[in-house]
Design a protein around this nucleic acid. Sequence first.
DNA 1: AAGCAGTTTAGAACAATTCTAAATTGTGCG
DNA 2: CGCACAATTTAGAATTGTTCTAAACTGCTT
Lengths: 143, 143
Amino acid sequence: MGKLMRENPDMAALAMEKLRAAGLRPTRQRIELAAHLFAGPDRHVTAESLHDEVVVSGIKVSLATVYNTLHQFTEAGLLRQVVVDAARGYFDTNTGNHQHFFLEDEGTLIDIPGDTITVAGVPTAPPGLCVDRVDVVVRVKRA
Amino acid sequence: MGKLMRENPDMAALAMEKLRAAGLRPTRQRIELAAHLFAGPDRHVTAESLHDEVVVSGIKVSLATVYNTLHQFTEAGLLRQVVVDAARGYFDTNTGNHQHFFLEDEGTLIDIPGDTITVAGVPTAPPGLCVDRVDVVVRVKRA
DNA sequence: AAGCAGTTTAGAACAATTCTAAATTGTGCG
DNA sequence: CGCACAATTTAGAATTGTTCTAAACTGCTT
C-alpha cells in the first residue's frame, strides 16, 4: 500500500493503529487523512479545508471520501463536530471536554481548555430527555 | 391596506408599530410575518417553518421574502439568530439574554431564562478581539 | 393620480453536503 | 500467491438550505 507519507512514515504507522483500534479498515485515504489530522496538536477543519490541504500535499482523495471519513472518525470517537457557523461544519481533533472561541470574521476556532470555563445552573432536561452535552461558544469580533 | 389578519386586527396594528419603530416600511408581508412571529410568546422558527405556517394560514408570501424579512428583523434587533444545527438557521423572537436546550432528535429549541445558567471563567479574548456574546447550548437527547 | 424608491417575487444560481452506482482495494483463504 | 468478496472510494448527479437577480409591484409623498 504505498508510496506516500514520505514526510513521516511513523505517522502512517500510528494512523493505522488508531484506525484499527477504532475498527476502521486502514485504507490508503483513511491513513493519509488521519496522518494529517492527528499529526499536529488540536486541529479544527472543515471537509473542504482538509481536502484542500491533503490534495495540496500531493495526495489523491475525493471530497466525498473526506466527508465520509470525517463522519466515520466522528462516530468512532476520533473527532468531534462543532456547530458554530450555519454555513459549514467543523470537526475538532480534540475530543475531550473543552469549549471554543469562534472568530466570526475569519471563521476560525480556538480551543478553550475544559477546566477554564465553568457552567453552573444548567436546568434538568425536559421529561424523557437527558443532557448529552453542554456547548459553550465564545463569539469574538475585531475589537 | 387589506383583508387579512382578520383573526386579530390588533396584532396587525402592533406589528405596524414595531416595524415603523424599527425603521422598516410596514408592507403587507412584513406585517403578516411580524404578526405571526410576535403573536405568541417566545418563538423559534426557521425560514421554511415560518413560510409554511404563514402560507397555511392563507397568506401569500414568497420564501425569498421570508428570508429577507428574517434578516431585516434580525438586523433591526427584533430577532436573534441561533446556531445549533449545521443544517438550518433558527431565529428566536426572544432577543434578551438567555440560553437554549436543543432537542437534537426533533430539531426543537427551548429557551432557558438568562438568569438560570451562570458561565464563569471565560478567558479574555485573543489580542485585537473582543467578546461579542457567549452562547450556551444544552444538547439533549431521548433518555 | 403620478413618480419613485423601497419591496416582493419567481426562478436561476450557489454552496455545502449527501447519494448512487460503478470501479477499486483490503483481507482472508485455499 | 492469487481469487473472491465485502468494504471502500469515486465521479458525478442530486438534495437542501440559502442567496442573488432582474422584473413587477406597492407604499408613500406630492
